[in-house]
Structure formats: C-alpha cells, structure tokens
C-alpha cells in the first residue's frame, strides 16, 4: 500500500497523537447528566388519569411484569329513571422493572395513552424487591416524560388535532350563522396547505 517503508508505522503514530490533541469524548456522568435522545427507554411512566383498567397492557406484557388491581364503583344515575353506571377504579398499578425487558409493548398497546416512555434511568437499587414500582412512583415519573417530538416538516396533521380543528370550525360557523354580524371565524389556516 505504502511505497516508503515505515510509512504505515508513522501513520499509526500520527493518528494517536492527533487524537490526543482533540477533546476526549468521555462524559462526566454523575456531574454532567447525559443528553439522551428523544424516545429513550429509561422507565415506563403511568398517566393514571387516563387508565381505564382495560388490562391490555398486563395481558400483552411478554414477561408479565405489570400488576393491576381494581374494583368497580357504582356511579349513581344523574337523571331520575336512568340506570346507574359502573366505573373501574384503579387500586394498584405496579411494574416490576426487575422483570421488565423494556420492549415497550405496553406503551404501544395502551389505547388510552396512559403509558409513556420516560428517559429517567437513575432508579437502580441494591434490592431486587425495590425494583417493583407502584403507581404513585410511576405517576411521579410522568413529569419526566418529554413533550412529543415535533412532527416532520410537511407531515400530516395528527388526527386528534385535525378533528378538534374541524369541530371548532363547525362550531364557529354555527355561531356565525346565529349572529350574522359576529366576528370572523378565527380558525387558523390548515398547516401545509400553502406549501
């Protein structure tokens, strides 16, 4: 490869010397927290208010590390003559992170957006029992869940937003028809429409 004998040896020396003059890539972890990428799988947080105790997550979990207890509560009918309704109330929601393999199926499968990935990772303990975290801890971790990453440029609007906007526009139109001299509808231009 090289014509001059020893050129390869010199090149090796040059590489190491050059590396020495550059900044090292070591992260000073305990002092400097790492910048984790979005969607880092640190821990699973529970948005308790959204949970309906549908048990899908517990059933789909490959290693059965989610424990859910609940009971039914009767909600009295609001109008006379109507039937009483029942509602599921969450008693216990626990994830055993000693078993969890961080596959994220529970997060995917939750139909009510009650489970989220949080980048929080500093929950190691010296006791394997202590790795089973109850719903209050899981709820606390909810605060560490980052906002969803921004959509790609020219991406389709999320269905929820589009639906809400359409409803708002419809309502505004109805309002306008009731009061012909009312304000102009202030629905924003649909994103991506002018590109």
């Amino acid at each position: 490869m090289s014509r001059i004998p020893g050129a390869g040896l010199a090149k090796g020396l040059a590489v190491t010397l050059k590396t020495m003059t550059k900044r090292s890539v070591t992260q000073g972890y305990p002092e400097v927290l790492p910048e984790l990428p979005p969607r880092s799988r640190g821990v699973i947080a529970l948005f308790e208010e959204n949970c309906t105790v549908c048990m899908l997550c517990a059933r789909e979990c490959p290693d059965w590390c989610i424990y859910i207890d609940s009971h039914k509560e009767v909600v009295p009918a609001k109008e006379p003559g109507a039937r009483d309704r029942t509602r599921n109330v969450l008693d216990r929601f626990a994830i055993d992170f000693a078993l969890c393999m961080y596959c994220g199926i529970c997060v995917e499968v939750c139909p009510f957006d009650a489970l989220f990935w949080s980048p929080e990772f500093e929950y190691a303990t010296d006791d394997i029992q202590a790795l089973t975290h109850e719903k209050d801890t899981l709820r606390e971790w909810m605060w560490t869940v980052p906002a969803p990453p921004p959509l790609d440029e020219r991406a389709e609007e999320p269905k929820e937003l589009a639906m809400a906007r359409r409803n708002a526009a419809k309502l505004a139109k109805e309002l306008e028809q009731e009061q012909p001299q009312g304000r102009e509808p202030n629905g924003p231009a649909s994103p991506g429409g002018d590109a």
Partner: peptide
C-alpha cells in the same frame, strides 16, 4: 493520562 487522551478518553479523573 496519555493513553486515555490518545484513545479519546480522559483517564483517571
């Protein structure tokens, strides 16, 4: 230290 920096590490700190 030198080995550390030559390997883009910081060595003992």
């Amino acid at each position: 230290k030198v080995m550390g920096h030559m390997q883009a590490r910081v060595g003992p700190i």
